[in-house]
Amino acid sequence: MTIAWGSLGIVVLASLAFGVAVVALVAFALVGLSARQATTNGARAALSPAVGTAVAVVCLAAVAAIVGYGLWIIVS
């Protein structure tokens, strides 16, 4: 009986890295988008609307790249 520890290790690391990263990136994107909302509400935001939008775009682009990479691995 041979246990493919290497493959199991890859599953564990990839799941941890991608699973946590995607959620964290979306959370940061929402913080960035909140800056625009805070301006509308008259509240004080940590980021300016422009910077917040830029952060959101970068984070969501990274999420799209991760999801696309995952799909590409499965299809290829």
Partner: peptide, 26 residues
């Protein structure tokens, strides 16, 4: 474990963000 860490981070990171934006976004 992945979901626990991700959930913890999601709440921590968005703790001061706009509730409506966070709810709609997620």
């Amino acid at each position: 474990v992945v979901a626990l860490l991700a959930t913890y981070l999601a709440y921590r990171v968005t703790a001061t963000a706009d509730d409506g934006t966070v709810r709609k976004g997620f």
